[in-house]
Design a protein around this nucleic acid. Structure first.
Lengths: 242, 242
DNA sequence: CGTAACGTTGAAACCTGTCAAGTACGGTGG
DNA sequence: CCACCGTACTTGACAGGTTTCAACGTTACG
């Protein structure tokens, strides 16, 4: 099914058969888009939301000089701009990092969901709050950690999220981003990200080359970044809104 | 009414009389709490959500050494931990800055709301997404701005939010926080916050003394911090989810 | 009027940014 | 197959912003 990865590893099992069907029916169309493309522009009115099926996307804001701050990464199964449903206009841009395949979910159908499927509604709501929880952790990361901690934290999070959707093999996962992207996410310069990656490599904690991340020592990364996956609300943690 | 400030200045007018009544009825009790108290502890299971009626609260996370990162401020009218409704456990602590008065909203009543009042449900959802939008702006602030920009940004945001609930007189508003609090919100040391505040004062942009902020030149603050209030989704901006 | 919390200031250390140059790699066209 | 090109990555030296450490001033309050 199209929506198979939605909330995978995050309490998807709370969805009933009818919930799953209602969600599946809310997808009007499946489309593709190339890498490094703008999908939704800040301030533009949106009528649909986007369920990412394959590829990597990100949300970002540019400063006055055009320097980008990435505020979120999105992996398959993520409802990238579900918040557009209740907000109508977004306060940031959404773009692709890699080629993507995504489902188009018209807001009209979501309105119907909220009127007929209260539990599914709460789960959709929950999924937008996961984003907020990740935002908070990024605030912590930027506010309290040094460069190494920030980068390590980013890899810890992506490793955990990739694991939930079964994209991690042997501690390795595909992450087709550049060092510039990492810098833009971590509030650093690409030059410094380069130095940090070298340092992490020399600690035998992580390698990142050719768009492939290999976790060598998760414990070291977690210690460096004070990472605690609680905020990802994985299924191993007891959840609410059932 | 108890819930008068909820979504004030943020599209409250979209609430119908019955929505307002349903929300009002969801408040089980009104309580008070002293300053600098913990209201909800990270990881603890929650059964109620908190509608702040009077006073200031904040959400924060501590690092390994006990250094606090404030991830959100809350002013009257804010549903401080509505996300607890669908998340059940919170990933951060919630505490008071000043003495507060707040409404207790049992999750059971919220479940009923989601089953009977789809539009109110969407508005509650929307209110949690406002927090997420503010989180994103804080990420931007920490990732892309220097110390002056961060502090200026914080004051711009609080000024705008206080204005929405009519707590600004003549460019001044009460903000009973210390320089340490500001530092913990902006990812700086209190020593440096002190220097920044002096600098902003010398620019004739802002004074902050004795828990009172006075905006002298909003334009300067907005320029310094690249502040754009779009993300606050004020009523002057067209909104969705009607 | 003493005390504790908060605020203020200076000097030095440290981390990250900036600038500049050079390397590695993959794709394209001859 | 190789020369060429652009993009991404790498490294070094130096500049600059923020932290750290330490001391002192100020204010509120019992």
């Amino acid at each position: 099914m199209i929506t198979d990865l939605f909330l995978r590893g995050r309490g998807r099992e709370r969805m009933s058969v009818t919930d799953i069907q209602a969600l599946e029916d809310s997808v009007e169309d499946v489309r593709t888009l190339g890498p490094r493309q703008l999908l939704v522009e800040r301030g533009r009115e949106v009528q649909n939301s986007t369920l990412l099926l394959e590829g990597l996307m990100c949300r970002y804001m540019d400063d006055r000089e055009g320097h980008r701050q990435i505020v979120a990464f999105h992996v398959p199964g993520d409802f990238v701009d579900l918040h557009g449903f209740t907000m109508k206009r977004l306060d940031h841009d959404i773009g692709t990092l890699t080629p993507v395949r995504y489902g188009v979910v018209p807001h009209a159908r979501l309105t119907t969901v909220t009127e007929s499927w209260p539990r599914l509604t709460r789960l959709l709501w929950f999924s937008t709050l996961l984003d907020a929880a990740m935002h908070r952790e990024w605030i912590f990361r930027l506010g309290r950690l040094g460069a190494e901690g920030r980068v390590a934290h980013m890899f810890c999070e992506l490793h955990a999220r990739m694991a939930m959707i079964e994209r991690v093999t042997d501690g390795s996962f595909t992450l087709p981003v550049t060092q510039v992207d990492i810098a833009e996410a971590c509030g650093l310069t690409s030059v410094h990200v380069n130095r940090v990656l070298r340092s992490l490599r020399e600690r035998n904690a992580l390698t990142f080359k050719g768009g492939v991340a290999r976790i060598l020592d998760l414990k070291v990364l977690e210690t460096l970044s004070e990472f605690d996956p609680l905020y990802l609300y994985g299924s191993d943690v007891e959840l609410g809104a059932g």
